[in-house]
Amino acid sequence: MMAGLESYDRVYRGKPDRSWENEKNFPYIYHGQEVIRPLDVPVVHPLVEDSPPSEDVTVKKYIGACCGLATLITETLLVHPLIVLRRQCQVNPGLNKYHIIPITLVPVVIRLHQTQGINTLWKGIGSVLLVKGMLLAIEDFISKITPWPKEITCNSSLKTFGQHVLLKCVSIGLVTPFYSASLVETVQSEIASESPGILDVFRDGAIRLVEVSNKGRLIPIYSLLPPTIAHGVSKYLFTLAIQGVTSRIMHIRQKQSQEIRGAYSRDLSEAIAQDIELQSSLISTFVAEALFYPWETVIHRLHLQGTRTIIDNLDTGRSVTPLLTGYSGASDCYSTIISTEGPLGLYKGFGALILEFTAKVVVVRVIKWVLTELQTVLRPKPKLTRDTSPYWYYSDT
């Protein structure tokens, strides 16, 4: 060491070399003065709050899954009374009040509850669930024994798309007799007919299937297959198309909003993607139901013709009325409705459809809000991290 520099501190990379402080014989008293060592200063990383724990992502996944489950429960249970009202309006050619707007249904529902009890609008719910389960089971079974795919994507080939459509056609065709029996159970009046058993839909569907000849005004099931299959497949494909378009638009708008906030990312988070898919599904389903509503009215009237069904009179809500029609087919039914009931006759009970989707949106939003609040309460608090080095301000970085 150069002369005269013995008392200078050793320097490493322009910073004092403090390795001597770790020596065991470090003096705490120097020339009668106490040596003050630097305190350990905790280092709180500035981005600690910007890095949510992995549990937060898991909770968001559960929120999307629960919202989807809530939509399924809403479709099958909570809105069933509105489906009953809508179908009773559709199939009644003598209905004077068309119930295009929801408000006109309120006094009718009150009178129905007064005369028949609160359970009157939940009739046929068991058969509806059985038919839906049967449709899903048939699709799954056929997709396993054939190369026909149960689902398709935007990247599917034309052959795959055709096979998927063929799967839908066969599944809807096989379920049609049981759908017809379920339709009778949902619209018939409980005060004018016996309550059906939970498995009667299979018996009545089988009877409808074997009746291949005209029996009075009853339309044979083979004549109902083409319009029913065409209606079901067309509405399904239209729903897929509208859902794809709305989902794409929502993704673009979400990315644009991120760019405006300066937080653009190539891929959206899974929670946002689930929310977009849920919203696009609700929108596409409502648009498809509204567009195909007249076709559904025609189909339902053809299915109930000749079944000797007695339904509630939704003009008053206190009486019943028989269904007496004589349509020769789908085109005759359509032209007869236009000539005798007017174009709005195809939209009888549309107010119940509006109430149905309003209930779905409200329930999904309420459940999503509840789950989001639970997420806020249950979210673990971020932990502060400390630098293990006692002299962080001397580090090379």
Rank of each mutant, 00 (worst) to 15 (best):
I283D: 06
T309G: 06
V165N: 13
T397A: 11
R111I: 00
G197H: 00
E373Y: 15
Q188I: 05
V41D: 05
K132G: 15
F178W: 02
F178E: 00
E341W: 04
I221L: 02
S257R: 15
L355M: 13
K235Y: 02
V361H: 03
E277K: 07
I191M: 05
S157K: 05
N155G: 09
D200H: 05
H300V: 09
S182W: 01
S127W: 00
S319W: 01
I260D: 06
K168H: 08
T325V: 09
T358Q: 09
Y236T: 15
S195I: 11
G32C: 10
H303F: 08
Y8C: 14
V187P: 00
R13C: 15
L47H: 11
R248K: 08
P147L: 01
I242M: 13
T358Y: 12
P382D: 14
H303N: 11
P220V: 01
D40R: 04
I260F: 04
L167I: 14
S281Q: 11
L69P: 02
G262H: 05
E34K: 12
Y394T: 15
Q114M: 10
L121K: 04
N155W: 02
L218C: 06
P322G: 13
I276R: 00
T321A: 06
I29G: 10
L5I: 03
P52V: 02
I83L: 13
L378G: 12
T76I: 09
T58H: 10
L82G: 01
P42S: 02
G244P: 09
I110E: 12
A290M: 12
R217L: 11
L282D: 04
I152T: 14
G32I: 03
I242H: 04
L69F: 04
T120S: 06
L240A: 13
Y391A: 13
V287I: 15
D17C: 13
M1V: 13
T340Q: 08
G68E: 01
G173F: 00
T146C: 12
S127K: 03
R379M: 13
V106C: 10
Y327T: 12
Y394I: 12
L278I: 11
V298L: 15
R261D: 03
E185A: 02
I221R: 00
T153H: 07
F178A: 03
L112N: 00
S195T: 10
E75M: 11
P147I: 04
I354N: 14
H80N: 01
V187N: 01
K61C: 15
M1F: 07
T297I: 09
Y391F: 15
W392E: 02
G126N: 05
T336H: 10
P147W: 01
S257I: 06
H303Y: 07
G94D: 01
I249V: 11
G4H: 12
P343R: 14
G351H: 08
P46Y: 14
Q116F: 03
V128R: 02
Q256I: 03
P102C: 11
D204R: 06
I83C: 14
G329R: 03
V364F: 03
V108L: 07
I260T: 06
V298S: 14
G345I: 06
D275A: 05
T104V: 08
L121S: 00
R301N: 07
T340A: 03
H251T: 04
Y393L: 07
Q258S: 06
V106D: 02
I145Q: 07
V362G: 05
L344E: 08
D204M: 01
G262E: 00
